[in-house]
Amino acid sequence: MITGAPLKFRIMELLSKKNMWNYEIVDALQDEYHHTSQMGRDNINYDCIEMVSAGFSKEIEWAIDTDGSKFDSKHPGRLLTKYELTSYGRDTLNELIAKVRNYTPDE
């Protein structure tokens, strides 16, 4: 596991293990990165969107959070997206793992 590295490194690492919905990624990382406020959660989501542009991940499934229970209760009706790491993302993650200061392989 990568520790103490920028947020996007960890998002890539999470996606390398399994495909995830954006709210699952947000829930998994908000405590680790002290992003528990709505603005913090939006920041994580924003990073997920940017990573698709960068070609590290791709959108594979969509749904609508009709009652806001998954992402933002104050703004129901948001688009939820499920992501998969691309092979380019996997290669980049391996390059980053070789460069980061703290990486502990999973047992």
Partner: peptide
Amino acid sequence: MTDSTVEVAR
């Protein structure tokens, strides 16, 4: 998506 709180639109 199987969760009941998330409704898949048409």
